[in-house]
């Protein structure tokens, strides 16, 4: 059975092109003919998770089916989570709904991050390109791995993509790590798809999400398929 799902994104729209040989569409055919999946943006404090979601909210109006909910502290740091519901439309009569979440990145909110991670299907790990945040990136990835483990999930098996954010600051003369260096730091073993981005300008934001949704939907399909047999 060959399944290929492409999620294509451009500046103004994100749409799903799907080619599936018919038989197995039943696997998506849950009670309400609807797939609901949860994607969580994870990463160190201030790396730009919320900014990613804000950009998605602005740029993909068509696919957004509700308001973005942000629960912040006064200083705009995420306290509990941000939440953004998306609807990618119908695939063979099956509605694809996506819930985007961000976690609070500050170290002390570990237990909240764990709560938000509950039931996660796919992860966008946002790394901060700022030189001074090198160690924080690595600690956050470790924290993610531990929190996943507490739900019996393996970071090597779950759909995950990495984003190297704040690339726009390079031309401002602010010391950034090169993407290669961050690949070595964070992605040597993981070998996840990775993207340079600037959540600030939106560059790379769509690509990152698109890649993550791709992996996530494929993974879900495989799971159901496998369970069916």
């Amino acid at each position: 059975m060959r399944v290929s799902i492409f999620v294509v994104a451009d500046k103004s729209a994100m749409y799903v092109i799907l080619s599936v040989e018919f038989l197995y569409m039943a696997v998506f055919n849950l009670k309400d003919r609807e797939i609901q999946c949860k994607v969580v943006y994870y990463g160190p404090g201030r790396c730009g998770k919320t900014t990613n979601l804000e950009y998605v909210f602005k740029a993909y109006k068509k696919q957004i089916k509700g308001d973005m909910v942000s629960i912040n502290t006064e200083g705009d740091r995420t306290l509990f989570f941000d939440f953004l519901p998306m609807n990618l439309g119908k695939i063979n009569g099956c509605e694809i709904k996506v819930q985007l979440f961000t976690v609070p990145g500050q170290v002390q909110y570990k237990s909240t991050r764990k709560l938000v991670l509950k039931g996660v299907d796919g992860i966008v790990f946002v790394a901060d390109s700022l030189d001074v945040r090198r160690e924080k990136n690595m600690l956050a990835l470790k924290d993610l791995q531990q929190n996943l483990k507490s739900y019996d999930l393996n970071i090597f098996k779950i759909p995950i993509v990495i984003q190297y954010n704040k690339r726009d600051l390079e031309k401002e003369g602010i010391p950034l790590m090169s993407c290669e260096k961050m690949e070595k730091d964070l992605n040597r073993q993981l070998k996840a798809p990775s993207f340079a981005a600037s959540a600030f300008s939106g560059q790379g934001v769509g690509k990152t999400l698109q890649s993550c949704l791709n992996l996530t939907l494929k993974h879900l399909h495989k799971q159901f398929n496998w369970a069916d047999k």
Binding site: R46, G75, D76, R77, L130, V132, R133, L169, G173, I174
Partner: peptide, 17 residues
């Protein structure tokens, strides 16, 4: 240059940095 960095970090809430 260092001052510029300090200001940027501060504006992004990276106060220790």
């Amino acid at each position: 240059g260092i001052l510029k960095q300090a200001e940027l970090y501060q504006s992004q809430g990276l106060l220790k940095e």
